[in-house]
Write a protein that binds this DNA or RNA. Structure first.
Length: 210
DNA sequence: AAGGACGGCAACCGCCCATCT
DNA sequence: AAGATGGGCGGTTGCCGTCCT
């Protein structure tokens, strides 16, 4: 497909970035294989797409991940596994590559450290209350619940059975605006759950699926 | 001061799926 | 219906800066 050696590899230069940005300003995203033909840029379409999606797009947030972002990634990863694009899709301004790198370089260690601490506190199949540093609040075993908007909740409950997911303990919140269900209703990483979650915007609140 | 070890991250690779022709 | 093309994904590689000895 791609011409192989005809294309340049390695780090992008500022000039190459400028060419790509100018091209996208004029033609928009997509049809990445045309970039080389129309601009003379010696980069394959996939490389152009990756450069834009992971670095040049103005939508990308740069800089360090916040504690809130770390917390969200850990919880989402616990539920979704290595589905980085799905996880990144729930974190505004972050790309799948950023999330993946951040997980592999920072959060893995963070989790390992935390689990070591848990094993020292005492092994138990039941959630235990552990002493954690304040910055690792996300790693404590919480109440394990998910809440979401009432309209989405009702629809999700209806759809759940189609995916083989038991949402029997779903409850309406006091204020009537949100629904809750609990960890026991979920089988982490179950394909049915993932498909179901994909149907919804997931702009709901997660209370530590752990 | 130097150079080896290590960590962080941008970029590539291979595979897969959807859409187009 | 089948091959070509475009695009998305997760895993992996390799460069580069920083730290350590």
């Amino acid at each position: 497909m791609e011409g192989g050696s005809a294309y340049k590899k390695g780090l992008w230069t500022a000039e190459e970035d400028t060419i790509l940005v100018e091209y996208i300003k004029v033609h928009g995203k997509g049809k990445w294989n045309r970039v080389a033909k129309m601009t003379g840029l010696k980069r394959c379409g996939k490389s152009c797409r990756l450069r834009w999606m992971n670095y040049l797009s103005p939508a990308i947030k740069r800089g360090q991940f916040s504690e809130e972002e770390d917390d969200l990634i850990i919880r989402l990863h616990n539920l979704l596994g290595n589905r980085w694009s799905l996880i990144a899709g729930r974190i505004p301004g972050r790309t799948d590559n950023q999330v993946k790198n951040h997980w592999n370089t920072h959060l893995k260690k963070k989790l390992r450290t935390s689990k070591d601490r848990i094993s020292k506190v005492g092994a138990s199949s039941q959630p235990v209350s552990i002493q954690a540093e304040p910055e690792e609040e996300s790693l404590r075993t919480p109440t394990s619940e998910i809440s979401f908007r009432k309209d989405e909740g009702q629809k999700m409950m209806e759809d759940g059975s189609e995916y083989g997911i038991e949402l029997s303990s779903i409850q309406e919140a006091d204020n009537g605006n949100f629904f809750w269900f609990y960890n026991e209703d979920l089988v982490p990483n179950s394909p049915g759950l993932l498909e179901l979650l994909d149907l919804y915007s997931l702009d709901f609140v997660w209370h530590g699926l752990y």
